[in-house]
Design a protein around this nucleic acid. Structure first.
Lengths: 221, 221
DNA sequence: CAAGTTATCAATAGTTCGCTTGAATATCAA
DNA sequence: TTGATATTCAAGCGAACTATTGATAACTTG
């Protein structure tokens, strides 16, 4: 009975997950978790908020089904709950960039001078021909948690010192956390200043990983 | 300058769209709009809320880039802003069903006794062989706004009277707004009670429409 | 232009949210 | 057990959100 009641109960239950995406702080945590699982303290540090606050948000994310958690000795490791959730976050991010001018504007300001990008498809081709050097400019922990096959880890901090070790005659492609992450942009700008031929991959690791799946989703998103 | 500031500005801007999905009432409006565009008053009536309240929520959805609107004489017609937005809503709905037991429970309670479903793929095959009768049991306005090619509009209200007009020897497949919409379930139950062979389509019109697109998304979701 | 519809606005009250601070708890290592 | 580290809990307060009500504005029709 109570058709009306149970219908609104359904929307209320779905909104529990929706609320997870309603706070900038939580979105930043989700974005970090899209790179791989992390402890509370790491997440708090990387997102520049207090541990207590990060912990609260992470608990909210846990309650809304967005993340899983696992105790590891004295720390607790949080991770995205699954690829549907990752797809949802990327979808929100991209849809907001399309529909909200303010997102586009903020992204442009944050990323600085635009640098030339290479598509996923072209990268795959050229990797097959061994025609390009692919570098992952994210922090080493994120590389360790997962990276594009064939990439070398060169964290942005170390780029200047390690640039000499890269072949001078190949084009270099840098990637990082995603299209709204500034690392690859910065890396490419620095390499070009140093006289190298460099571009950034249009996407980052999460997108690569998601699109690399054998059987895609059955239903939307 | 202000790298930190502009980064948080970016997440704040994205959260503007995220907030749209944080309220059950708004989700219900989005779900209705997934069937086609509607005026404020229609939406208010269909979701059993006051016009003023629906209007407020619709304005919030407009501000977050989820919907577009257009004045039509004395009324204002709202519509989903695009397929990315539709995909986002379907993704949230499905992800919440996977990750939140409460959503599953509420859906089961709302839908009542489960009825046998037919997959999209099988339906396409059998439609090709003219082996099945497909009926759309949504309200007529929704059928008019878009429907599966080859379907006949038989609103649930009229099913009992019009059942006699359907061939007695074919299987009948009913579809409605989506997997969480009760119309198709009810239709199939009634047809079976009347001695017909009937199943429901696993998805509804929005999913069909979205998956029918020629070139799918470039990036996630 | 007057009447009727449809949509929005404005003000309010109750509720929830978000961040801060300081204390409490859990685990590990010595 | 004690100390150290990582996480969570609890309380508080201001801000933001939500639904309600009644008034107002926009548009169409007669």
């Amino acid at each position: 009975m109570g058709t009306r009641e149970s219908k609104s109960a359904l929307f209320e239950a779905i909104a529990v997950m929706g609320k997870a995406f309603a706070s900038p702080r939580r979105l930043e945590l989700i974005d970090l978790l899209a790179q791989g699982s992390r402890s509370v303290e790491e997440l708090a540090r990387a997102s520049a908020q207090s541990t207590a606050n990060a912990s609260q948000h992470l608990q909210a994310l846990y309650a809304s089904g967005i993340v899983t958690r696992e105790r590891e000795g004295t720390r607790v490791r949080y991770a995205l709950a699954g690829d549907e959730v990752l797809a949802l976050w990327l979808g929100l991010r991209d849809a907001s960039a399309v529909r909200l001018a303010e997102v586009e504007r903020a992204a442009r300001e944050y990323l600085g001078q635009e640098v030339e990008a290479i598509s996923r498809k072209e990268l795959i081709e050229r990797l097959g021909r061994d025609d390009v050097v692919l570098i992952d400019v994210r922090p080493p922990e994120e590389f360790a948690a997962g990276h594009i096959e064939g990439a070398r880890s060169i964290p942005l901090d170390e780029l200047d010192q390690r640039l000499a070790g890269l072949p001078a005659d190949s084009e270099i492609v840098a990637y990082c956390r995603g299209p709204f992450c500034a690392y690859a942009h910065q890396a490419v700008r620095r390499m070009r200043e140093a006289g190298r031929t460099a571009r950034r991959l249009e996407d980052g690791w999460p997108e690569w990983h998601l699109n690399d799946k054998p059987a895609r989703r059955t239903r939307a998103a």
